[in-house]
């Protein structure tokens, strides 16, 4: 009994198959047979799956116990969102810790804070060129520079908050036109502020004034706003090294030079590169290779997302 009875070759099988299929009734019978076999197979498959789940305990493991989800039920009233919060009420603001400077920042003002904190934004190229300029020409002049504090209303807490809020409103009024136009007048931004607010610069001070001032305040010049920091001499935003470097350069008697040159450089157009038309395929190719190129093109197609 222990031998395979059927010893047909593939050729025999094929010949026999065609012979049988000559007859129409055979073909129909075969079709029915195949259908029944597949149907049986699929049915048995379901049964095996079910049997396997029960017998091995897998079904019970996977199903577990259904969590009571009454507390998560969607609220279906027109005046509430799905969580049951009123759509009229504003969400309470919360503080979050800035990952860049570790300070607590009001969540609703986090993005503008972060932009400044990271030294990004429209001004970044200008800031960068200034940094290069000021590095190459030592010592630097601080003409027309204002307190860095003006823009720091987004720091949460602090005793100066009310005062700062007022100033912030003023600042926003100054900045708004620049945002909307994307235009050339943005180059004057720093000067505009200087004119509007007046204020102390190292340039206009006598050596003694400088000395006295730097005993009281931090005095580090922000690279974004070009203003002096008016916080205490132990302000956490700037390092001891920055303060030391500033004092060295400001208090040493040396002739300030190159101030105008630095200003000129800063005033060069922010982005004057020609922008090509945005064909989809060429942009895709850029993607892995040259991010700055994307930027140039994207800048043109980006709508302003302000609310």
């Amino acid at each position: 009994m222990n031998t395979i009875i059927s010893e047909l070759s593939m050729n025999d099988l094929n010949n026999k198959f065609f012979e049988i299929m000559q007859s129409e009734s055979n073909a129909e019978e075969a079709a029915n047979f195949i259908f029944d076999s597949i149907f049986d197979d699929v049915t048995v498959g379901f049964l095996f799956e079910f049997h396997h789940g029960l017998k091995t305990g897998l079904t019970d493991l996977i199903e577990g116990e259904k969590e009571d989800d009454d507390v998560y039920k969607i609220v279906n009233t027109p005046e509430c969102d799905v969580f049951g919060f009123s759509i009229m009420k504003k969400t309470p603001d919360s503080n979050c810790s800035c990952p860049n400077c570790d300070r607590p920042v009001s969540a609703t003002r986090f993005a503008p804070h972060l932009e400044k904190c990271m030294g990004m934004g429209r001004n970044s190229s200008r800031i960068a060129s200034r940094r290069i300029a000021s590095n190459s020409r030592e010592p630097t002049s601080y003409a027309g520079l204002l307190s860095d504090d003006e823009d720091d209303a987004d720091w949460a807490g602090g005793s100066l908050q009310n005062d700062r809020r007022k100033r912030r409103i003023k600042n926003n009024n100054n900045r708004k036109p620049n945002k909307l136009h994307n235009g050339n007048n943005r180059n004057n931004n720093g000067n505009q502020n200087a004119d509007a607010d007046g204020g102390a610069t190292y340039e206009t001070m006598t050596a003694n004034e400088k000395k006295n001032l730097l005993l009281q305040i931090c005095g580090v010049v922000s690279e974004h706003t070009k203003k002096l920091c008016t916080r205490s001499t132990r302000c956490p935003q700037h390092t001891e090294e920055q303060r030391r470097a500033l004092r060295t350069s400001v208090l040493e008697p040396s002739t300030p030079e190159g101030a105008g040159a630095a200003g000129d450089e800063a005033g060069s157009p922010p982005d004057s590169s020609p922008s090509s038309s945005c064909s989809s395929s060429s942009r895709k190719r850029d993607r892995h290779r040259a991010p700055p190129k994307i930027k140039n093109k994207r800048e043109r197609i980006s709508p302003n997302s302000r609310e």
Binding site: L114, M118, M120, G121, K295, N304
Partner: peptide, 16 residues
């Protein structure tokens, strides 16, 4: 936001 801005510096700040 901080991670994306850190690693995609070409995004020119939130205004744009």
């Amino acid at each position: 936001l901080h991670l994306i801005w850190t690693h995609a510096r070409h995004l020119a700040g939130y205004e744009q």
